[in-house]
Every structure is written in C-alpha cells, then in structure tokens.
C-alpha cells in the first residue's frame, strides 16, 4: 500500500486516541503498536504535523522519574478535523466492504461461486 494511504490511517488513529485523552508521545506509539505495525510508519512526525496544523497542542508535565513529559492535547479544531476524517473513512470503508462482499459475506460463499464458475468453464 502506498505511504500516503498508510499515513492517513495512522493519522486518524492518533486523532481517535487524542479525542479520548491527553497522551504523551510514547503512550501514543505504544497504544498504536498494539494494533498496527507502526515501525515502518512513523508516528512522531504525524504528531508534529498535527501540532503544526493546530489540531493538537502540547504541554510539559514533570514526571517522578526522569525528564518532563510532553503531552499532546486535541484542540477544538482538531476534533472537528477528526469528525471530518472519520466521515471520510467510514464512507470509504463502507465502499470497500461493499465490493468485498459482492459475492457473499463468507469465504465459503465466495468459494462456492468461484468453484461453480470455474467448473463450468472447464467443461465447456
């Protein structure tokens, strides 16, 4: 899949996390890595871009151990952006599923059809 596409997926996931709670950088990367492969897609640059575009802001808090932590917080603009992205994604995914489920929802259905079709052509 192309990078632009993956970037979009990661971005909306970051937005989803921040819509719930303020988070620090490592926590965001860790949470995402539980579900998706973040290694080849870099999360931190996305956080920087979201901040640059005014969708998130940052603040520092002292932590008990070690250096202060930078928290990312979603702005109202960011939330509106998230809603917009969410609509786009659900419309997009709905379309993809519509295509994938054309011949039936289950693997078996698809296989039955495929088998019927291929057998017919071989006997002809």
């Amino acid at each position: 899949m192309n990078t632009q596409f993956k970037r979009g997926i990661l971005e909306i996931c970051v937005l989803a996390l921040l819509a719930e709670n303020d988070q620090y950088g490592y926590a965001i990367i860790h949470a995402l890595s539980q579900h998706i492969d973040v290694g080849e897609n870099t999360v931190y640059p996305i956080l920087r871009r979201l901040t640059k575009e005014g969708y998130t802001e940052t603040y520092l808090t002292e932590s008990k151990a070690g250096a202060p932590r930078k928290y990312y917080t979603m702005t109202k603009l960011g939330f509106a952006h998230y809603m917009k992205q969410r609509d786009e994604w659900s419309a997009f995914l709905a379309g993809v599923y519509q295509i994938l489920n054309r011949g039936g929802k289950k693997h078996e259905d698809l296989y039955r059809r495929f088998k019927a079709r291929t057998e017919k052509t071989t006997t002809e």
Partner: peptide, 11 residues
C-alpha cells in the same frame, strides 16, 4: 522528544 520517548519506554 525522542529522548523522552525512549526514557519513558525504558521506564
């Protein structure tokens, strides 16, 4: 920021 993230991860 990367330094912070690495340290947090180690912690």
């Amino acid at each position: 920021d990367y330094d912070e993230m690495i340290h947090t991860g180690l912690e």
